[in-house]
Amino acid sequence: MTSDVAPQTAIDLLRRMERIRLLEEAIAERYPEEKMRCPTHLSTGQETVPSAIGVALRRDDQVFSTHRSHAHYVGKGGDLGALVAELYGKAGGCCGGRGGSMHLSDRSVGFVASTAIVANSIPLAVGAALANRLLGNGRVGCALFGDAAVEEGVFSESVNFAALRALPVLFVCENNQYSVFTHLRDRQPAGRRIHEMVAAMGVRTVVGDGNDALAVLAAVEDAAAHARNRKGPVFLEFATYRWREHCGPFYDNDLGYRTAGEFEAWRARDPVARLEGELVSRGDLDAAGLRSLQESVRAEVAAAFDVAEASPFPPAADAYRELFVAQDGMPSQGSHTE
């Protein structure tokens, strides 16, 4: 099945993954400069799922994300300069400096937004799907979240309603096993399989290896078609691993909450290196082509930092604007007021 992926599509997938990897690593490298003065949750090691979402979904499908949002934004095709400028708190940031790392948005590519409270954005994707159904626009909503989010009540509430109304929405869980420092074994009962729990709620579920990019892509494409064809929501769970610390630019294997052996085992299954190898062996890319792709992504990332550096800071007065929309939004019919 995965060998069916067209070369162009596979290269698109790899390019998105390289973007995420190189951007996150650049952020980690430059974070100590103290110009990115906001918390950052990096996704190094978790490049696969966001990239597959970006390739498989339509540009106008609506993606909602979490505190660990850079990869989701970049995977869907979000503008890199606007992301980095947002981390810098600059006027050219995607939220003009109001959101920081955890609130990203690029509606031109269907990345509606990320929000910072665990599981908070899941019902928003369901609401978008409800609107899509009523408006008949054929779009699919998509909520991205981690394994801790399924412990929030709002997750179950959202899945229940989506199943009840057979809404066109994907629930995509990147299971990296940890909520900050706390492992799944301390949060969920032994033997629990998250996708099995969700299957019992009456939605289609898929489980997969989050380091196998071509397989993840096939699974997401299949799920999106299912949801778009009015067959109801799909829950997808992919095993993955966050290489760096929960929040910040460093590695934290010295803290003792996870073993160096565990980390090394996951790093040995590096999803980016794996896809690079697969594309070369499939003949989609030769070594020179791969180097050229990496160089062009490296240049994109460098340019994104240049955009951020060059962008001005918004004036302090910008903090006191745009609280409310001034104009009403409903047509009137000879409406009259007192």
Binding site: N120, I122, L124, V126, G127, L130, A131, N132, F161
Partner: peptide, 27 residues
């Protein structure tokens, strides 16, 4: 029933659903 309906007893999610629907063009 597409525009007027009962809901699951899920106050938080259904408020989020309303926000998401509002963002996507409903009122």
């Amino acid at each position: 029933a597409e525009r007027v309906f009962d809901m699951p007893t899920s106050e938080n999610a259904m408020t989020g659903v309303a926000v998401g629907a509002a963002l996507a063009g409903l009122r």
